[in-house]
Design a protein around this nucleic acid. Structure first.
Length: 215
DNA sequence: ATCCTGTTGG
DNA sequence: CCAACGGGAT
């Protein structure tokens, strides 16, 4: 079973999940930070709150004082540090690139740039690269590692899965939708306490076939 | 290993 | 009531 087959099997169950919703690349970037350890519903509220009081632009985040920004994004949790992160990230982008459009032509440089920013770890970085900047890169989160380790009954590294997936899937759409489908599967079935019996991947999963699981 | 924190679902 | 949440920093 290779990555492409896993993708197809998931796709026949979930189809196109339309990730990531957002009216602009910048909104996607903001959402990537806001959603850290937070459900997407609460991020939507935060973004709506921002939009209700002005347009969502880099300059506005930079010029907004940190406390009122924190208040606007309160529903997303961790609002003090996220407000600080967002301002710092926007300032750094403004200084080095001026706009997100100017970040779309140099993967290695942008990858290193994002990696150094406070508030952007591996998953947020990869999400921004894939969903906001449209680079052909795969997002690995803790769901992805758990999913693959159960599927093959083997521990994989971040690099293992990332390189293998980027080799096997050819389009940006597939990379976007693969991550989306793994997240949905992990919330619906491949949870910490998994629901293997009803899981659409059960018949090819080593963990599901050993299945010490509820009905 | 702990802190950051509001919201929702079971 | 508690667990979980498209994590990251120290």
């Amino acid at each position: 079973m290779n990555i492409k087959n896993i993708y197809e099997k998931l796709f026949s169950f979930y189809g196109d999940l339309h990730w990531w919703p957002g009216d602009s690349d910048f909104e996607v970037l903001i959402g990537a930070v806001l959603t850290q350890n937070t459900s997407w519903k609460n991020v939507e509220k935060a973004i709506k709150s921002l939009k209700d009081h002005g347009d969502l632009s880099m300059d506005r985040i930079i010029n907004m004082d940190e406390e009122s920004l924190a208040l606007r994004i309160k529903s997303a949790g961790f609002y003090n540090q996220k407000a600080r992160y967002l301002k710092g990230i926007c300032k750094a982008i403004k200084i080095k690139y001026d706009s997100l459009e100017n970040m779309k032509n140099n993967f290695n440089e942008v990858y290193d740039f994002l990696s150094k920013l406070n508030g952007i770890g591996p998953e947020t970085r990869d999400s921004i690269l894939l969903y906001a900047l449209n680079y052909k890169t795969f997002v690995i989160d803790k769901y992805t590692l758990r999913f693959f380790s159960r599927l093959y009954n083997k521990e994989f590294s971040y690099k293992d899965i990332k390189e293998n997936t980027e080799r096997s899937l050819n389009t940006i759409f597939e990379l976007k939708n693969f991550h989306a489908m793994i997240v949905e599967l992990s919330k619906d079935y491949c949870r910490k306490k998994p629901l293997c019996i009803k899981c659409p991947m059960n018949d090819i999963c080593s963990y599901g076939n050993n299945g010490a699981v509820p009905d």
